[in-house]
Design a protein around this nucleic acid. Structure first.
Lengths: 143, 143
DNA sequence: CAGAATCCTGTCGGATACTG
DNA sequence: CAGTATCCGACAGGATTCTG
């Protein structure tokens, strides 16, 4: 596989620095970043959302998630499985049948994520307004 | 500017589909994705974390965040400012002084984000164990 | 000091074709 | 059905240089 199974994190997370009192933020981020990368990539959040309701098969997921390629669905599911958030169950029948479900750990993550989703829906008008104001001001100064 | 000021979202968010009961997940994600992209990019979370404690200047942020380029600090701050999460204050002095602070909206986002950070720190051992188990099993079947 | 502009690279992710 | 294997374009983002 060309990607996804690498053990090296995407970000440097250097810890050899010692010149600032708040540098711990950077180190804290080393752990946060890994899970954040998991939930924040293009499709993981959708998958977790869907699986929170029910167990789904590969093809069902592909149909529910509009626009995903089977390549990205596969890698997304592998990532989630590796992190213990999703359980993959292969039924030894022909044609093959593979079920995906959230693990208990994955369910707790979904709960936490939901808070973020709620925040977004709640404050979306404010963000839209802020963007409109910003863009208007930018258009003003650069006509 | 080559990037960052584009109004088009990074993801397609197609809404013309109507073949599934759960397709709303995809539409819901259209709003979620935008704020998720904001907090999940490489540096925004760090910036929000730092500014939650105090107002900081550009150079202070650059020093606190180990490894960031001034290019990415600038674009990150512009994004956060555009979304109304960070307030940029220019003091008309020479040499120039620019302060960055969280807006009230940004502060509420930080609170929500903190729940995710806490989840991560709390469950990090489980994730690490799951990864180790997965990698061990993978090494087993592919020697 | 606080950036803007330019160049260049690695990586993400889509399209396609092939299997058990 | 549920993947794997390749190829390849787009874009995020680092290094560097230049200003008000």
């Amino acid at each position: 596989m060309e990607e996804g199974t690498s053990n090296s994190p995407s970000y440097s997370c250097r810890t050899e620095d010692d010149y600032g009192v708040m540098q711990w933020h950077v180190r804290e981020d080393c752990e946060v970043r890994q899970i954040l990368d998991r939930i924040a990539d293009k499709w993981s959040l959708l998958v977790i959302s869907l699986l929170d309701r029910q167990t789904l098969r590969f093809t069902q997921l592909k149909q529910e998630i509009d626009g995903i390629s089977q390549r990205m669905l596969t890698t997304t599911l592998r990532h989630l499985e590796r992190d213990g958030l999703v359980r993959r169950t292969v039924h030894p029948v022909v044609p093959p049948r593979v079920d995906y479900a959230l693990t208990p750990l994955g369910a707790t993550l979904h709960t936490t994520i939901q808070a973020l989703v709620d925040w977004t829906e709640h404050h979306q008008p404010e963000i839209a307004a802020a963007r409109a104001a910003y863009d208007a001001a930018a258009a003003q100064s650069a006509p």
